[in-house]
Amino acid sequence: MLGFAAAVLFIIAFLINATSTATSAVFSPMSLLLAGLACLALHLAGVGTKWSVPGRRTRR
């Protein structure tokens, strides 16, 4: 899931940079790029990759 979030942040940063849109410092392409890299690093580290609900396993 964090990999998808990183991809979306990279696309938004690319579009802002490609269109030369003036934005505030929080949504600058560099800050979005760094946020995307942080999400990608967390994804590669294995954070948020396994979703399990306790007690939902059924044995047959």
Score class of each variant (00 low, 15 high):
Thr21Glu: 04
Thr21Phe: 07
Thr21Tyr: 03
Ala22Asn: 12
Ala22Trp: 01
Ala22Asp: 09
Thr23Val: 15
Ser24Gln: 07
Ala25His: 03
Ala25Phe: 07
Ala25Thr: 06
Ala25Leu: 07
Val26Ile: 15
Val26Asn: 08
Val26Leu: 14
Phe27Leu: 15
Phe27Val: 15
Phe27His: 12
Phe27Tyr: 15
Ser28Val: 06
Ser28Tyr: 02
Ser28Cys: 09
Ser28Asp: 08
Pro29Thr: 04
Pro29Ala: 06
Met30Lys: 11
Met30His: 04
Met30Leu: 14
Ser31Asp: 01
Ser31Ala: 08
Ser31Leu: 03
Ser31Arg: 12
Leu32His: 00
Leu32Gly: 00
Leu32Met: 13
Leu32Pro: 00
Leu33Gln: 06
Leu33Cys: 11
Leu33Thr: 15
Leu34Tyr: 06
Leu34Thr: 07
Ala35Pro: 00
Gly36Asn: 01
Gly36Ser: 13
Gly36Pro: 01
Leu37Tyr: 05
Leu37Gln: 12
Leu37Lys: 10
Leu37Trp: 08
Ala38Phe: 13
Cys39Asn: 09
Cys39Lys: 03
Leu40Val: 03
Leu40Ser: 14
Leu40Gln: 15
Leu40Asn: 10
Ala41Gln: 09
Ala41Thr: 15
Ala41Pro: 00
Ala41Leu: 15
Leu42Asp: 02
Leu42His: 02
Leu42Tyr: 04
His43Ser: 13
His43Pro: 00
Leu44Val: 12
Leu44Phe: 13
Leu44Ser: 10
Ala45Gly: 14
Ala45Met: 13
Ala45Lys: 11
Ala45Cys: 11
Gly46His: 10
Gly46Gln: 10
Gly46Met: 08
Val47Gln: 04
Val47Ser: 05
Val47Trp: 03
Val47Arg: 06
Val47Glu: 05
Gly48Phe: 03
Gly48Arg: 09
Gly48Pro: 01
Lys50Trp: 04
Lys50Tyr: 03
Lys50Ser: 06
Lys50Pro: 00
Lys50Arg: 13
Trp51Pro: 01
Trp51Asp: 09
Trp51Arg: 08
Trp51Leu: 14
Trp51Thr: 12
Ser52Phe: 04
Ser52Lys: 09
Ser52His: 06
Val53Leu: 13
Val53Pro: 00
Val53Met: 10
Val53Phe: 07
Pro54Gln: 12
Pro54Met: 08
Pro54His: 08
Pro54Gly: 10
Pro54Tyr: 05
Gly55Glu: 05
Gly55Ile: 07
Gly55Ser: 10
Gly55Val: 06
Arg56Gly: 01
Arg56Val: 12
Arg56His: 03
Arg56Trp: 05
Arg56Glu: 08
